[in-house]
């Protein structure tokens, strides 16, 4: 699936305003951490913000005192997911946060996982 995500339309439609992205992320373009970060990666702070930190980094550390998904961080900070991904990758590289629940590699989820979700839904 991941390959088809990158197909021709990606050339036609940029992901986010490049200038804005460049400014907040100070031109950093990517890392191995970034590749593993998903919309539903749960982020948890390892420590509180430090004086002199970039405000966006500090805000994420404050938000993630309990686990929060990348999508939720994006919503609360009003920043695009593409930007939050780079910011979280920085924090991961600096070992300031822990990232949980990276995407399962299997094409089809296993039966036990699906059964767990069904149990949870039944309680709704």
């Amino acid at each position: 699936m991941s390959e088809s995500d990158q197909k021709s339309d990606a050339q036609e439609w940029d992901e986010g305003d490049p200038e804005r992205l460049y400014v907040i992320t100070r031109g950093r373009s990517g890392s191995t951490e970034k590749a593993a970060i998903d919309l539903v990666t749960l982020v948890v702070s390892r420590s509180g913000p430090m004086p002199g930190m970039q405000p966006e980094h500090a805000a994420i550390l404050r938000l993630c005192q309990s686990p929060l998904s990348v999508a939720e961080i994006s919503a609360y900070l009003h920043l695009p997911v593409s930007v939050v991904t780079v910011l979280v990758a920085d924090l991961l590289a600096g070992e300031r946060v822990e990232a949980r629940a990276l995407v399962p590699p299997a094409q089809l989820p296993d039966a036990a996982l699906i059964e767990a979700v069904m149990h949870g839904l039944q309680k709704l």
């Binding site: 305003d17 200038e19 804005r20 400014v23 907040i24 100070r26 919309l39 539903v40 990666t41 749960l42 948890v44 913000p49 970039q54 405000p55 966006e56 500090a58 805000a59 404050r62 938000l63 309990s66 686990p67 929060l68 998904s69 939720e72 609360y76 900070l77 009003h78 920043l79 949980r100 629940a101 399962p104 989820p109 996982l113 979700v117």
Partner: peptide, 30 residues
């Protein structure tokens, strides 16, 4: 968008207490 400080840490409103996940949350699916 020119400002590098797009987030004013003092005004960010995070999740309400009842909306926070327990620290035991270790996996997410979508």
């Amino acid at each position: 968008f020119k400002s590098s400080e797009l987030v004013d840490a003092d005004t960010v409103v995070g999740p309400r207490v009842e909306d926070t996940l327990p620290s035991s949350a270790t996996a997410a699916v979508k």
